[in-house]
Design a protein around this nucleic acid. Structure first.
Lengths: 100, 100
DNA sequence: GGTAGCGGTCATATTTTCCTGACTTATTGC
DNA sequence: GCAATAAGTCAGGAAAATATGACCGCTACC
């Protein structure tokens, strides 16, 4: 059990895990469309809550799919943008959509 | 809340859910390679257990990705085969692999 | 008749995930 | 100064997922 032991015999499993959870797929989809913000998500995703969104956003950021950006404009905004890695995932998601 | 209420604002979410869980991605991958059997999985997937595999296999079957087949040969075998729907998912999984 | 392998189920833990409500810091509007 | 909005954190608790160990029916072997 070293630090390099990734314990991941299935390559796709990592990606799958990045989008697993109750809110992450929807957040990702919205972010793929346009940058998202905390309060906006809280309003759009009915039934969600601060805690879960906070965790989900942090995980999406940690896995490199979203990037948190502080916009130093008038009222100070924080937005989450899709990264390059995130964008690379979009076409795969679209294929999944079509299989549904 | 009718029976037609699918509560699924994100199309890909259904597919994602079908492969969510600790063992389902690996089971799916193995089944995509060749039909799998209960005892074989239990041996190959180190750290797994009957209960979890049973649940995972039933869910994969219920979601139409695997098909349970009883082979009425000499010692009686039960195997899980990839369905057409499951096969359609394979190339998408391969794309996920390459994004890793 | 005893033992072993296959393919499970069942009842019960343990672990992980998700939700709730209270509280915080900073900014804006009145 | 006071309330509101944004973007959270924190301490619980409830619910869902996962694991453990016992047990069962069937076939096969010796």
């Amino acid at each position: 059990m070293t630090a390099t032991d990734q314990d991941m015999p299935c390559p796709a499993q990592g990606l799958l895990k990045m989008l697993s959870g109750k809110w992450k797929p929807e957040i990702f989809r919205l972010a793929a469309d346009a940058p998202v913000r905390f309060s906006g998500l809280l309003r759009q995703l009915k039934g969600s809550n601060k805690q879960s969104l906070s965790v989900a956003l942090n995980e999406l950021e940690a896995s490199g799919l979203l990037e948190k950006v502080v916009l130093r404009q008038k009222p100070l905004h924080i937005a989450y943008y899709l990264t390059g890695k995130g964008a690379a995932l979009v076409p795969v998601m679209q294929q999944l959509d079509q299989l549904s």
